[in-house]
Amino acid sequence: MKLTFLGTGTSQGIPVIACKCEVCRSVDYQDQRLRSSVLIEQNGTNLLIDTGPDFRQQMLVNRVDHLDAVLYTHEHKDHTAGLDDIRSFNFKQKMDMPLYGRPSVLNQLRHEYAYMFAETKYPGVASVTLNPIKNEPFEINRVKIIPIEVMHYKLPVYGFRINNMAYITDAKTVSNKEREKLKELDVLVINALQKKSHISHLTLDEAIDFIGEIKPKRAYITHIGHYMGTHREVQKELPENVHLAHDGLILHG
């Protein structure tokens, strides 16, 4: 299995001219973070998790030429706003793109992209199929996927486990029942927005504590805000098996 970090940042963490923080002024490529998303390649199947506002750029930069399906963690715009650009894959692959998410997420997409679902479609509009999922295992092209429900303040969000890798973003709390699904992981990807307390995201210390409880062989921090600090400095503070992810990082497992 191959996992590519297409983006490891947040809308909060986009470098802008008006911001003079150390991260936004950094010339280190590891501090240039697009919105969080990953591509998982398993047995010839390419699964994308989330289509944020940077989706088109991420596909071009990483030379992604094929997608089999998109999995959605939740309905916030920094994870869904790039869906319209799926049309390039429609044209190339000559197929509707399957989208997987909880019913509330798919209903949100149906509302925000109503023109994709109109009875009479405008020529060339993106074409997708909606596949509702529950908090139970399912398969795409014989790839088994286990949803992991976490809470983003009061909003339920799905992480996903494939083989011995799990990807979780926008989590603040994870129930004991869902933590049971994270046993014996080779790789855990978990969000940590910043060092200061936040109402809906894990802090760096909270993420490290969570990793210490789950005990994966390796862990990677994603969904990083610019208030976290630079990659170089934050990495020095982390345990030996914990790493700050960066855009373009590739893991094999």
Rank of each mutant, 00 (worst) to 15 (best):
R102G: 04
K121Q: 06
V187T: 15
E240N: 14
D68E: 11
M116W: 01
K134R: 09
M165Q: 09
S200L: 06
Y220K: 01
N191A: 02
Q32T: 11
D50L: 05
I221R: 01
L71V: 02
H231W: 02
V174Q: 00
P15T: 02
L47G: 00
N241Q: 13
T203M: 09
K2A: 09
V105Q: 05
M95F: 12
N163R: 02
A219D: 12
A166V: 03
A171Q: 00
I140K: 01
L34A: 10
H198E: 10
Y158K: 00
H246W: 10
F160S: 03
M59Y: 01
Y158M: 02
L238C: 10
L47Q: 00
D50H: 05
A81H: 06
N90M: 12
I168G: 07
L204S: 00
Q108F: 14
E237F: 08
A114C: 12
E240Q: 14
K181A: 07
I199F: 09
Y227D: 14
V105I: 11
D28Y: 00
G225E: 06
G124Y: 08
K144L: 03
F117M: 07
H246S: 12
K177E: 15
Y220W: 03
Q93T: 14
N107P: 15
L202Q: 11
Q32Y: 08
N46W: 06
T230P: 08
A166L: 07
H252Y: 14
M95G: 14
G9L: 05
